[in-house]
Amino acid sequence: MHGARRRWVGAAYPGGVLVLLPPSETKSVGGSGSPLDLDGLSHPELTPTRRKLIEALSTLADDVPASLEALGLSERQVDEVRRNSELWDSPTAPALERYTGVLYDALAVRSLSAVERKQADARLAVASALFGIVHGTDSIPAYRLSGGSPLPGLGTLRGAWRPALEPVLAAADGLVVDLRSGAYAALARVPSAVEVRVLSEDATGKRKVVSHHNKAHKGKLARALAQSPDEPAEVEDVIDVANDAGLRVEREGTRKLCVVVQA
């Protein structure tokens, strides 16, 4: 297959590949960036929704018990509420360094070369319950808000984000690879996106959906797409990049891929 490998040329998003990552509940604390500046984030058309949600979340933080209940947190996680109360004043960090956890450990952006990091910042974007979508160069504070958490007075986040975020994602004129989890995919539908799931295969060839290590394999795929010197333009290009990186990726449908791992 490698001998017949496609070569393609493309520009960084917009116009190139856009890889949508799920966020993580855990985030790094602190940062060296200045406090949040909504005008400095990508996709300024999302600013009104971002501002509305930030104001609602920071106001909710004034009532600690209500915050814990709304966000599904325990009393041991009260520091998460404190961070929400400081959204406008706390230091920021690049989005790809703010999120932590299994997927982001596998992505390991800090270990990328300068060229690869520039590509990661352009090609990868994180679906965020608070910011809608953020790219690698967007500096954001630590916060706590899940895609399925309703905010008092605002209803569901899906209702808040769909009208604003779906047109932004629909405007992407290159290939979109969707690695988001269900709660974040629900915030904005992308009918043209390539969906990816992870399956484990046992010695008999039987496959089942991977749950625990799902994020790690998606992180490895995101890293491969960030590192590729060529810009993926078609579904087969994604398969080529993944296979070259040692991943086993197969096509399941016109716009569906699966990462196959050994059970």
Rank of each mutant, 00 (worst) to 15 (best):
S192T: 01
S192Y: 00
A193T: 04
A193C: 03
A193Q: 01
A193H: 02
V194S: 02
V194C: 05
V194Q: 02
E195W: 12
E195M: 11
E195S: 12
V196G: 08
V196S: 12
V196Y: 06
V196W: 04
V196T: 12
R197V: 04
R197A: 01
R197F: 05
R197I: 01
R197K: 09
R197L: 05
V198E: 09
V198G: 09
V198D: 06
V198C: 06
V198A: 07
V198K: 07
V198R: 10
L199Y: 11
L199S: 10
S200D: 10
S200R: 12
S200K: 14
S200E: 13
S200F: 10
E201T: 11
E201W: 01
D202C: 01
A203L: 05
A203D: 13
A203Q: 08
T204G: 12
T204A: 15
T204S: 15
G205C: 05
G205D: 09
G205V: 09
G205P: 01
G205Y: 01
K206Q: 14
R207G: 07
K208C: 10
K208V: 13
K208D: 15
K208S: 15
V209L: 13
V209H: 12
V209K: 14
V210I: 05
V210G: 06
V210N: 11
V210T: 07
S211F: 05
S211R: 13
S211A: 11
S211I: 03
H212V: 01
H212M: 11
H212F: 14
H212E: 15
H212A: 11
H212T: 11
H212W: 09
H212L: 07
H213N: 13
H213D: 15
H213K: 09
H213F: 15
H213A: 14
N214Y: 06
N214A: 08
K215W: 03
A216Q: 04
A216S: 11
A216W: 01
H217A: 12
H217Y: 13
K218S: 10
K218Q: 09
K218Y: 08
G219S: 09
G219V: 07
K220F: 03
K220H: 05
K220D: 03
K220V: 00
K220Y: 08
K220C: 02
L221D: 09
L221E: 08
L221P: 02
L221H: 05
